[in-house]
Nucleic acid binder design. Structure first.
Lengths: 106, 106
DNA sequence: TTTCACTACTTTGCATAACAATATAGTTGA
DNA sequence: TCAACTATATTGTTATGCAAAGTAGTGAAA
């Protein structure tokens, strides 16, 4: 497993929630979006299991809608629990990234 | 599994390497050190498997030394491969923490 | 002197996650 | 017709955090 994959672990759920918080998106769009932000190598094989898991845990909810061009799309939005989870992740992230940042600088 | 544990995944190896880079430490000391830096809840049950794994992968090497007080201690230092691995992790960390930081801010 | 607390390392087992690989299917243009 | 792109879903592999339990040395309180 690559260093990048390893680092991505656990942060990915938060990233997905953060994107969905800002706008209603569908899976394929989301994977493209994360790649442009700097999280390359986040393929569909990674994104869809994350979305299914988040939905199963009631953090997001999906809704199928037809597309004018191409297959149907499943649009996701945050639930109330999802907003709260995102807040938790955000604060944990701040604490940990701060601590790790200091360690890495030396 | 807690959010914190999840976030810690994959970053922990880098943190351990970063501490060892600065000074030769033994496991128990390391776990205490990480806790004070802000990475609380990093217990021995977490640290020792990490150390064993890093040693197995030749990123660090350990040496048993007697202690004036208490059981013997195993002191670890980085190998050349460990230094290179730490450099890789450092640069990956910069990229990912930057991207995630932006996403989290919104 | 027994018992507790602290230091110190090791091993086992479980739940979870990234993601490659694979399957399925609609649309579009050459 | 066939390739390329869009779009979602599932399966299997591998690795990891860490709780838990075990072993063992030291020292102080009871």
């Amino acid at each position: 497993m690559s260093i990048r994959s390893q680092l991505l672990k656990g942060i990915l759920d938060g990233c997905v929630l953060a994107v969905i918080e800002k706008e209603v998106v569908y899976g394929y769009e989301l994977s493209k979006k994360l790649q442009t932000v700097g999280l390359a190598d986040v393929s569909e094989g990674t994104i869809y299991p994350v979305l299914l898991r988040l939905q199963k845990n009631n953090l997001i909810k999906g809704e199928m809608r037809p597309s004018e061009s191409g297959p149907n799309r499943k649009y996701y939005q945050l639930t109330q629990a999802g907003k709260e989870a995102l807040d938790d992740i955000r604060s944990e992230w701040l604490g940990i990234s701060d601590a790790v940042g200091k360690l890495m600088k030396g």
